[in-house]
Computed example of a mutant assay.
Amino acid sequence: MDVQELVGLVPWTFVAQICNLFIQMYLIKRFLFKPVNEMLEKRRALADAQIREAEQAKADADAIKTEYEQNMKEAKEKANEILTTAQKTAALQSEEMLKEAASQAAALKSKAESDIAQEKRKAVNEIKDEIGGMAVEIAGKVIEREISEEDHTKLIDEFIANVGEAS
């Protein structure tokens, strides 16, 4: 009979074991599952928050990248515009310098030509004066030979008298 009690079912023991099982399940649920679930929910919420922050940071980074690319594009366009303007300005200045140099060269050429013409006239006048002086000398020598001493003295006296009257 002792063996039969081990294999058999005693109603009070069975009810006590069922009550014990429910009490254990309640205690496990109350003190183990609830804190574990709360901890899991906190971790899930933290992970979700971190994911949202990462997505926000990525969105911000994409916006900054787009703005940076736009600024770089505008800077390149502005640099190209400045370069084009500088090239046009340099071409205009170069043209002006060439025109100014050409006009200065023309002015120098005309001045040199007028200086040459003036020097030529001066040289011709000097030669005329020299030729005139030589002609007077030659004429004086010719006249000296033909004019006598008395005629010569008479001419000088007349000249002195004329000069005295003129002054």
Rank of each mutant, 00 (worst) to 15 (best):
A49G: 10
T66P: 00
A59K: 09
E41N: 09
K73S: 14
L92M: 14
E38I: 03
L32H: 10
A79L: 08
E77R: 08
K58G: 01
N80R: 11
E38M: 07
T85Q: 12
E41H: 05
T89W: 09
V36T: 08
K76I: 05
Q24E: 12
Q50D: 04
D62C: 01
A57Y: 01
A61V: 00
Y26R: 13
L21V: 06
K34I: 05
A86T: 06
T89M: 11
A75S: 12
R44W: 06
T85G: 06
Q56S: 07
Q70K: 12
E81G: 04
Q87W: 08
K29H: 13
T66W: 02
L32W: 11
I51L: 14
Q87F: 08
K73I: 05
T89D: 15
N37L: 12
T85P: 00
L83F: 15
Y68R: 12
Q70R: 15
N71H: 13
K76D: 10
C19E: 15
E67L: 02
A57S: 03
L40F: 07
A91W: 05
I51R: 12
A57G: 00
A75H: 11
K29D: 11
T66C: 04
A91D: 15
L21A: 14
Y26D: 07
Y26K: 11
Q70M: 07
I64G: 00
M25K: 14
K88L: 11
I64Q: 11
T84F: 09
L27Y: 10
V36G: 02
K34S: 04
Q50S: 05
A59G: 06
D62S: 03
A49L: 08
R30W: 10
E74Y: 09
N71A: 13
E55H: 05
E41D: 10
E53Y: 04
A45H: 06
D48V: 05
E41K: 08
K58Q: 05
I82L: 13
Y68H: 11
A91N: 11
Q50E: 10
K58A: 03
K34G: 02
R43W: 05
Q56W: 03
F31H: 11
M72V: 15
I82Y: 04
F31D: 14
F22H: 09
Q50C: 02
K42I: 03
A75P: 00
Q87K: 14
L92F: 10
Q70W: 06
E55M: 04
L40A: 08
A57D: 02
A45E: 15
Q56M: 05
D62G: 01
T85H: 09
N20Y: 14
E69D: 13
E81V: 01
T66I: 03
A75T: 04
A90W: 11
T66Q: 13
F22K: 10
A45N: 13
K65S: 02
Q70G: 06
E69H: 03
A91F: 09
N71V: 06
A49Q: 15
M72P: 02
M72Q: 15
E74P: 01
E69R: 05
M72H: 15
A59S: 08
E74S: 09
L83Q: 13
E55Q: 11
N71P: 02
Q87R: 15
K78Y: 08
N80A: 06
A57L: 03
M72W: 14
T85C: 04
T89C: 06
A54N: 10
N71D: 14
Q56A: 07
N80T: 04
A61Y: 01
K29Y: 14
E77K: 09
A45S: 10
K73N: 13
V36D: 11
N20S: 12
L27C: 07
R52H: 04
L21I: 08
